[in-house]
């Protein structure tokens, strides 16, 4: 199939659109919660542009409201966002031929939502090529596929900034009795439940939840870090017991949603 930079870009934008339906309320809720936590509107908006990571922003504003020391807040940000290293590793084979400014800008756009769309596209395209071993991957024909990630990423970026702005605008008019803070948990339920496809995943979730409740009296949501580590440890331990020999090189195939 002949592609151009422009066609790849718009294909990325189009693939991102259905996901944006879920991002709009998420961004608005962030804006509302940020103001409720006492953040000035300008800072609430700046956070969406500078951090550009929904779940870390939600946790961040809660911790800021609680007067959390910087070191703990930053450590929490690290734990919540470390999953992006997986995305960075998965996209790297497709960006190795690009210039540094390109790679550094695509890294800024590498969110959950843009990654999912782009990696599925790349893997589909790879499947159309003749069998490539891992070493030949770098020899695949020059293409404009990085424009696909650019399109998906910029579509999400624009949507996130605008929905944050709407949330900030509405923020002061939303009464606490609406319990809008609970939408955070519900949003996360929608994200995590589809991931619970096997026993190690379910055990990791359960362990993290129980440890979080057991340690909730620790200051500054330290329970979040402890519970996350406990959940990861449980998941890896069970995974090692049940898994077949380690697949090398790694692939995202197992994570493809049906």
């Amino acid at each position: 199939m002949i592609t151009t930079a422009r066609s790849e870009f718009w294909a990325g934008v189009r693939a991102e659109l259905p996901i944006l339906v879920g991002v709009v309320p998420f961004g608005m809720i962030y804006g509302v919660l940020a103001l409720a936590a006492g953040l000035p509107p300008l800072l609430a908006q700046a956070m969406s542009a500078i951090v550009f990571a929904g779940s870390a922003q939600f946790i961040g504003v809660q911790l800021m409201a609680a007067g959390t020391p910087l070191a703990i807040l930053w450590l929490t940000t690290f734990v919540v966002n470390i999953r992006h290293m997986l995305y960075s590793a998965s996209v790297a084979p497709y960006t190795r031929h690009l210039s540094r400014p390109w790679r550094w800008f695509l890294a800024y756009l590498l969110t959950d939502e843009a990654f999912v769309v782009a990696i599925l596209h790349y893997e589909e395209r790879d499947a159309d090529l003749p069998d490539l071993t891992d070493h030949q991957v770098n020899l695949r024909p020059i293409s404009y596929q990085h424009y696909y990630l650019l399109g998906a990423g910029l579509a999400l970026w624009t949507c996130w900034q605008l929905s944050t702005a709407v949330g900030i605008f509405l923020g002061t008019q939303v009464p606490p009795s609406w319990s809008l803070d609970f939408t955070l948990a519900l949003t996360f339920i929608g994200m995590v439940v589809p991931l619970l496809k096997n026993r190690p995943a379910a055990a990791a979730a359960l362990t993290a939840g129980i440890v979080a409740v057991a340690t909730h009296q620790l200051p500054y949501k330290l329970s979040l870090i402890i519970a996350a580590l406990a959940g990861i440890a449980m998941g890896v331990w069970l995974d090692n017991q049940t898994a077949s020999p380690l697949p090398t090189p790694y692939s995202l195939q197992q994570e493809k949603t049906p």
Binding site: D112, P200, A204, A208, G209, A212, S223, L224, G231
Partner: peptide
């Protein structure tokens, strides 16, 4: 790394 989002989100949801 695959277990990170599961563990982090669950540690927020359950409490």
């Amino acid at each position: 790394l695959k277990f990170v989002p599961i563990a982090v989100l669950s540690a927020i949801i359950v409490p």
